[in-house]
């Protein structure tokens, strides 16, 4: 499994949904799981984004599918960064 960091910003529509049905947050996580990925950490943040999610997914294609699926509802705008745990990254730099 690879790690991805998904930055999400709510649209006006998304904000409305969140206010009316806070439990929607959990439902989205279950839908992501149904598509073969898993949300390992999730934070609501102040600043340029609304949520930061750390996902585990088998590959880029799965993540692309999730992005399209969630994005198509018009409630969030997603930016996804492929990520590598820093220890693995350091090892890679050292050429091991």
């Amino acid at each position: 499994m690879a790690t991805y960091i998904m930055l999400s910003t709510l649209t006006d529509e998304g904000r409305k949904t969140l206010k009316e049905r806070p439990e929607r947050l959990q439902e989205v996580n279950r839908e992501i799981e149904a598509m073969g990925a898993r949300v390992t950490q999730q934070y609501a943040v102040l600043g340029g984004y609304d949520f930061i999610n750390i996902l585990e997914a088998p590959d880029n294609e799965t993540v692309a599918r999730i992005s399209v699926e969630l994005g198509s509802r018009g409630t969030v705008v997603l930016t996804t960064l492929p990520a590598l745990p820093v220890d693995a990254f350091t090892q890679m730099l050292k050429g091991k």
């Binding site: 790690t3 960091i5 950490q41 934070y43 930061i52 750390i54 930016t79 996804t80 960064l81 492929p82 990520a83 590598l84 745990p85 820093v86 990254f89």
Partner: peptide, 15 residues
């Protein structure tokens, strides 16, 4: 808590 090297507009994301 957690730290990742990322591809994209940032190089690292740290919690």
């Amino acid at each position: 808590v957690q730290q990742y090297a990322t591809i994209g507009q940032y190089d690292f994301v740290t919690v």
